[in-house]
Nucleic acid binder design. Structure first.
Length: 561
RNA sequence: UGGGGGAUCGUCUAGCGGUAAGACUACGGACUCUGACUCCGUCAACCUAGGUUCGAUUCCUAGUCCCCCAGCCA
């Protein structure tokens, strides 16, 4: 939990102020205990990262603890695969729960006993109404509900029935255990909520030991209390569950009464955060798995090349409030650039090559030039880059008839090849059939070796390049936002999938990178100068290197043209 | 039309009775062997109407708009 590189203090927020006050008044024995409680029914996404950073960040800053607890009360939807991935993602994000890994399913026996206790206190009953009946008895938003005819069963009968539910005597859906609260409550959650249901399915941890499973409202507050959580932080939609949370803790006379505090979940534009929709994209093969680099999942962002420190920084910058909001993707990207700028070595790559022949450079000669790994950080050292008669430059860096302000290569305009020489273009060779430029004939000034002219002559442009024969082939995958509109979720009558960006992935199989990158490993990150930040993909092999473009560099030239 | 929440620059977030602040974006400019980084600067907001007050984004009242809740999901 020691994130040493995060030097700036985390900005305060309303939750931290509540904790400050609790500490001041001596509440909870001056302890702070939080938890991150995912349900293992999907992969974590950046919205979860907000919650993780909040909960673990508070524990870190207040010298408290944060537990990782799987809320695994619905075996029908949950899988080991998700558990493994969640554990991995939280660690990757930079947080640790030491020996405090818990599962709601670890508490099933205690939970059962709590339910018995509730029955004995005449605060719960077994109800035989069908699901449809229960719904209609519940009333509506504006009308009170009706009491179930089974509400007045004796405790003896309830105890017997509940034990038999556990023993598997009844079919799924035939009976439930309900809390006895108030069918006329204006808060629908208090209208005798179901706390146990029969589910004859295999649980990924408890196997077939149970055929009744507690509902979230019942399991969550008790789990929090058992773990002596002091501040139970959740999202806004649970706000009207809080009275039930408090009611259960009180009625069960639990020794600890955690305080539930709600905050607004994260929304990001140009993407979706709903687990259901993410699952739909994955299962429908609209993306290539949970770790598709276009997805806002943590595994996706990781594969895309987002450093965990950037995600943590982002979570701090967006703040914590109860206001629902949609954060701009641009902010996340800015956090990523900010981090990557500090940590990545620079390298040269040419994505769309155009061939140049340096006519006055000797054939069969290769020069080695020095290039620092990071222009602003000499500690990162330098590498040698080969220079030869035939080189590649980026197609975009040459224009035969340039617009005003274009200071890259044009016929007659001298430019600098980064860390190499000044060159001038004298001839443009075109395909006689389609007129496409196939080669540029240039000359270099040997006096400018390393990139500076002894006569003090300046050039406007510096472009990246690669010696053709020495360059290594690589595939580069370019990513763009997943959706074409800012809020694909919000459209009422149009399916969000129709806003999927058809150009969100562009694979360029024939790119070139400098030879010093021959031995990279998956997740290695580089800035390809003037192009953006890139990350070695897990598909990459020594025989075939694959890079993902994490994010572009800012490009004020492109923007203004 | 029940209950629970929320409204501050384009976006996110501070301010909690005393000159509305920061970040991102946008737009200028400086610097530059990355049109990057960095550095400077500019534009830009208190949902509405009343009230209390010397003074209201802040307190009060009444509205308006937005979000959530009628799963044996979490």
């Amino acid at each position: 939990m020691n994130i040493t590189e995060d030097k700036k203090p985390t900005p305060s927020n309303f939750i931290r102020r509540i904790i400050d006050e609790d500490l001041r008044t001596g509440k909870n024995n001056k302890k702070v205990a939080t938890r991150f409680p995912p349900e293992p029914n999907g992969y974590l996404h950046i919205g979860h990262a907000k919650s993780i950073c909040l909960n673990f960040g508070i524990a870190r800053d207040y010298n408290g603890t944060c537990n990782l607890r799987f809320d695994d009360t619905n075996p029908a939807k949950e899988e080991i695969e998700y558990i493994d991935s969640i554990i991995d993602s939280v660690h990757w994000l930079g947080f640790d729960w030491e020996n405090r890994l818990y599962y709601a399913s670890d508490y099933f026996e205690k939970l059962y006993q709590c339910a018995v206790q509730l029955i004995e206190a005449d605060k719960a009953y077994v109800c035989d109404l069908t699901p449809d009946e229960i719904r209609s008895y519940r009333g509506t938003l504006t009308e009170p509900g009706k009491e179930s005819p089974y509400r007045s069963r004796t405790n003896i009968e309830n105890l017997d029935l509940f034990a038999r539910m556990r023993a598997g005597e009844f079919t799924e859906g035939s009976r439930v255990l309900r809390a006895k609260i108030d069918m006329a409550s204006p808060n629908i959650n208090m209208r005798d909520p179901i706390i146990y249901r029969i589910r004859k399915v295999h649980h990924h941890r408890t196997g077939d030991k149970w055929c009744i499973y507690p509902m979230y409202d019942f399991a969550h507050c008790i789990s929090d209390s058992l773990e002596a959580i002091t501040h139970s932080i959740c999202t806004l939609e649970f706000e009207d569950h809080r009275p039930l949370y408090d009611w259960l803790i009180d009625e069960l006379k639990m020794p600890n009464h955690p305080q539930q505090i709600e905050f607004a979940r994260l929304n990001l534009n140009y993407t979706i955060m709903s687990k259901r929709k993410l699952l739909e994209l994955v299962q429908g093969k609209l993306v290539n798995g949970w770790d598709d680099p276009r997805l806002p999942t943590l595994v996706g962002l990781r594969r895309r090349g987002f450093p965990p420190a950037a995600i943590r920084d982002f979570c701090e910058r967006i703040g914590i409030t109860k206001q629902e909001s949609v954060v701009e993707m641009g902010l996340l990207e800015e956090c990523v650039r900010d981090e990557l700028n500090k940590i990545t070595p620079r390298a040269m790559a040419v994505l769309n090559p155009i061939r140049i022949v340096i006519e006055n450079f000797p054939e069969n000669t290769v020069e080695e030039l020095d290039a620092p790994w990071h222009p602003n950080n000499p500690d990162m050292g330098s590498r040698k880059i080969p220079f030869a008669r035939i080189i590649y430059i980026e197609k975009e860096d040459f224009m035969e008839i340039p617009p005003k302000g274009f200071f890259r290569l044009t016929p007659g305009q001298e430019v600098r090849l980064r860390y190499a020489y000044f060159i001038k273009c004298h001839n443009v060779i075109k395909d006689p059939i389609n007129g496409e430029i196939i080669e540029l004939r240039c000359t270099y000034d040997p006096e400018t070796r390393g990139g500076n002219a002894p006569d003090g002559r300046k050039v406007k442009g510096t472009i990246h390049w690669l010696a053709a024969e020495q360059a290594i082939k690589a595939e580069v995958r370019l990513y763009d936002r997943l959706f074409t509109i800012a809020n694909p979720d919000a459209q009422k009558d149009v399916d969000y999938k129709s806003f999927l960006n058809p150009d969100s992935l562009k694979a360029l199989p024939d790119c070139f990178i400098e030879p010093s990158l021959a031995k990279v490993n998956p997740e290695d990150k580089y800035q390809f100068e003037r192009l953006g930040y890139f990350c070695v993909d897990q598909d990459s092999t020594t025989a075939k290197l694959v890079f993902n473009r994490t994010v572009t560099l800012k490009d004020t030239w492109k923007k203004s043209n």
